[in-house]
């Protein structure tokens, strides 16, 4: 089954991004496919390469990055939400790309299930 995932919150204020990551990982481990993860609202902050959490904390950005590397998961950051928050092409960690909100609607159409994580 193909899952689409929407992440509405940033990496360190809210558990949403962690929950989405755990869900995505479990889905992949069970043989499902992640069609796309779309980062919207403050969720765009999950894509910043400048994130540098203390070493005793989990690295949310790296978790996503590794998921993209290992399983070719499409990580899409909303361009308009990103621009508002200073997340542009140059800010992106590897594995993320910037595109329009249409990519979220397309995920809703193409994926078998759309799962949202937010506040």
């Amino acid at each position: 089954m193909k899952f689409g995932i929407l992440v509405n919150e940033g990496p360190y204020n809210h558990q949403a991004s962690d929950s989405a990551y755990r869900f995505a990982k479990a889905a992949i481990d069970k043989g499902h496919q992640i069609f796309r993860v779309f980062f919207y609202y403050d969720g765009v902050l999950n894509a910043t390469k400048h994130s540098d959490p203390p070493s005793d904390d989990r690295n949310v950005v790296k978790n996503w990055q590794k998921l993209a590397e290992d399983h070719h998961v499409d990580l899409v950051v909303c361009v308009a939400a990103g621009m508002r928050r200073g997340i542009v092409e140059d800010s992106l960690a590897p594995g993320f790309r910037i595109s329009g909100l249409g990519q979220l609607i397309e995920a809703g159409i193409q994926a078998d299930r759309m799962v949202t994580f937010g506040d």
Binding site: A26, D29, D112, R113, M114, V115, T116
Partner: peptide, 20 residues
């Protein structure tokens, strides 16, 4: 349930509605 169970619940339903 664990996250595996969460995935199963999502897969077995026709849609997932997050009450944010």
């Amino acid at each position: 349930v664990d996250y595996d169970g969460f995935v199963d619940l999502a897969a077995e339903s026709s849609a997932v509605h997050a009450w944010l």
